[in-house]
């Protein structure tokens, strides 16, 4: 089945089985391996992409659902080969350890920031609640986002306030 959609700002048409999962279409047919598969059942967020600007899980979508949609993957967020400021912040704050969750984290973070320009730490936690990380323990990821959205002066990681988890 021929499916046409916009992928990272380029209109493309591909011939693919309509019941193939979008994560597999991206990684196998389109060689976009930035999007990761963790659980394959919607619990870990590693496969997060944007569909018409909203974060969605590419492991829970089939190819036919791509028709006519505007898709952005982690490969599509840099501008003229310059990393997105969220990616820069992840590096600066050591928010990447093994890196497997990072693309999904960044895509979820972008959806959060689109809805809420200056999220609080609590709102950042809620915004990333669909993404699991098994290395860094989330603190550095939240620090990075807090700095990138200007909620702090970027003065480095801070400790949790009482009442935060």
């Amino acid at each position: 089945m021929i499916i046409s959609f916009t992928l990272n700002n380029k209109v493309i048409s591909i011939d693919v089985e309509p019941d193939k999962r979008v994560i597999d279409v991206l990684r196998e047919d389109l060689q976009l391996t930035g999007t990761k598969e963790g659980c394959g059942s919607g619990e870990c967020g590693a496969c997060t992409i944007h569909v018409n600007g909203e974060s969605r899980l590419s492991c829970l979508m089939l190819a036919a659902q791509l028709e006519g949609k505007d898709i952005t993957t982690i490969e599509g967020i840099s501008i003229e080969n310059k990393m997105h400021s969220i990616q820069e912040a992840f590096i600066q704050y050591g928010a990447v350890q093994c890196g497997f969750c990072t693309p999904g984290m960044v895509m979820a973070a972008l959806d959060l920031i689109r809805r809420n320009k200056r999220p609080s730490r609590k709102e950042i936690r809620e915004g990333l609640s669909g993404n699991l990380c098994r290395c860094t323990g989330y603190q550095k990821i939240i620090d990075a986002l807090e700095a990138a959205t200007g909620a702090t002066d970027g003065g480095g990681p801070r400790t949790m306030k009482k009442g935060e988890e």
């Binding site: 967020g45 997060t48 669909g130």
Partner: peptide
Amino acid sequence: LGSPQIRNM
């Protein structure tokens, strides 16, 4: 309910 991604879908 779920997570942001699950609520978007």
